[in-house]
C-alpha cells in the first residue's frame, strides 16, 4: 500500500510520447532519432528519417568540431544570466 502511495506521489504529469515511427533507413543515428523523438513527443513519419539523420549528422559533426576545441574549465558561455 505504502509502495503504491509512493508510486503515485512520484508520478509526474507528462505528455504521452508519440509512438515512434519504424526505423526506415538503417542509418546509424536511426535508433537515437527514434529515442529522441519519443522523449520529445515528436511524431515522425518514416519517410522523414533520412533527411533528419543527414541533418543531425551534420549538427553533431559541427558540434564535435566546436567541442574538441580545448578551453579552460573556467570559460563562461556567451549567454550568462544576469539577475
Amino acid at each position: 500500500m505504502a509502495k503504491a502511495r509512493r508510486s503515485r506521489a512520484n508520478a509526474r504529469p507528462r505528455k504521452r510520447a508519440a509512438k515512434a515511427a519504424p526505423v526506415a533507413t538503417g542509418h546509424p543515428l536511426d535508433d537515437f532519432i527514434k529515442a529522441a523523438a519519443h522523449g520529445l513527443a515528436l511524431p515522425l513519419k518514416p519517410e522523414w528519417f533520412p533527411a533528419i539523420a543527414a541533418n543531425l549528422e551534420t549538427n553533431l559533426r559541427l558540434a564535435a568540431l566546436v567541442a574538441e576545441f580545448g578551453l579552460p574549465d573556467e570559460s563562461e558561455p556567451a549567454a550568462v544570466f544576469t539577475a
Binding site: F32, I33, A36, A37, L40, L42, L44, W48, A51, I52, A53, A54, N55, L56, T58, N59, L60, A63, A64, V66, A67, F69, L71, S75, E76, P77, A78, A79
Partner: peptide, 26 residues
Amino acid sequence: PAVRDRLIAGAMVPAALVTKAQIFRR
C-alpha cells in the same frame, strides 16, 4: 520539409554540445 527536417534534427542535439558552442562563442 526542408525546414522541418532541420528543426527536428536541431531538437535532438544534446544540450552539452550547445553549451560548448556558447562557451566557444565568448
